[in-house]
Design a protein around this nucleic acid. Structure first.
Lengths: 208, 208
DNA sequence: ACCATCTGGTGACCAGCGTCACCGGCTTAC
DNA sequence: GTAAGCCGGTGACGCTGGTCACCAGATGGT
């Protein structure tokens, strides 16, 4: 599918006039897995819409990270939007987890569109709400759940996203996403396995 | 000051036409300290603007709480907005910390205003950004800081809000706001005092 | 063949903090 | 005056999870 067509089909709900504006002023970008899109403290000049792929959003302090959420197609990065509109530095990091196709909207145009095409607010409000809810969930998990359930929740979410029950995933990666240490994850995974919730074999993880 | 006048002066940036709409369709409300405004799981039909006083927003699970942020005059409750616009149940609780004056906006009208008076989006986007930043800070604090610094940060924020260095605050309250136990707070406060960061005398706390 | 590097796996240790049980002091109600 | 409640304060104990040191197996490069 051509890029404009992908844009149109993915974001049809925005309406034709807005889509046209987005198409003329926006810019297409294709990035390989691992590309850093937003760094902490960085000022944002463009807001990305995700057309294809997955972008991972997380906080980082020194060498400790915490996964906040993923941005999937038809979604947008509200943190960029927030940082862009408010002219404030970003508080989070965003990295392409897979090869990802983006459509970049310049902040300057966005500021106009917010009043010119009120429909675009719908997109951002929806996104804000969703992210908000995810952050609250994260906070609750951090505060109320022990690592066991956090890891398990994380694994369930991963399988939901990938659409398959077998995950090819390193303990190290899980640890990083949850802001803990590799050995601790190993320990927890062992316990989950004993409880019959997962199964591990040659580096893959199977959810039961 | 009359209520409409207070509304106008506090939210002047919204523009005359919008203010008029808000004034005709909105409703004034005065609540005493301790009033619960939003409960977890509740569906929201009105979004409050705060004219005077302070509203406290927090998560609650069983008997454990965590303070998320305060809503002050000229601010609004984006969680209500989120819940109202998305027709989803609220994830948080909101309680008036002091006697508080509110202006209630019916969700139905708000949905129209979002496109009719794009200026109102400015308010909500600003609020969203601010809350977002606060949530991220909370997450970082939970993940990276130990109780010492969390308590200290909390106290500093409190004094900033009240505008005075002496706080009349129970250990029990601090514990509740930070999602921990009273004895633990007592312990931490003792340490902070030994470190010369605070001083405690007859139930009051002085920040140094 | 050999070494470097990645993986998961373990045991020991310790810090943070939640919990329990129990003070004594101060205030308020009756 | 006495009893009931709240307040901060303490010591003991145990669980969770972060850290360290170290192992063995798989993989891949030269």
């Amino acid at each position: 599918m051509s890029q404009p067509a992908l844009l149109r089909s993915t974001y049809a709900l925005l309406g034709e006039d807005l889509l046209q504006a987005i198409e003329t002023h926006g810019q297409y970008m294709d990035v390989p897995a691992g590309t850093t899109l937003v760094r902490e403290g960085q000022f944002v000049k463009v807001v990305p819409l995700v057309l294809h792929g997955t972008v991972k959003v997380f906080t980082k302090t020194e060498d400790k990270e915490l996964l906040l959420y993923y941005i999937r197609p038809s979604e947008s990065c509200v943190m960029s939007f927030a940082a862009g509109m408010g002219d404030e530095p970003s508080k989070i990091m965003a990295v392409a987890e897979e090869a990802t196709t983006l459509w970049l909207l310049p902040v300057a145009q966005l500021r106009q569109w917010v009043t010119e095409f009120p429909r675009i607010n719908l997109l951002f409000f929806t996104q804000y709400n969703q992210r908000y809810a995810e952050l609250i969930d994260t906070i609750n998990a951090l505060l109320f759940n022990r690592l066991d359930s956090r890891v398990y929740q994380y694994l369930k979410e991963k399988t939901r996203m990938k659409g398959e029950l077998v995950l090819d995933l390193r303990h190290r990666q899980i640890a990083q996403d949850l802001g803990t240490a590799r050995e601790v994850v190993t320990r927890v995974m062992k316990r989950l396995e004993q409880e019959g919730k997962i199964k591990q074999a040659d580096g893959k993880i199977l959810l039961l």
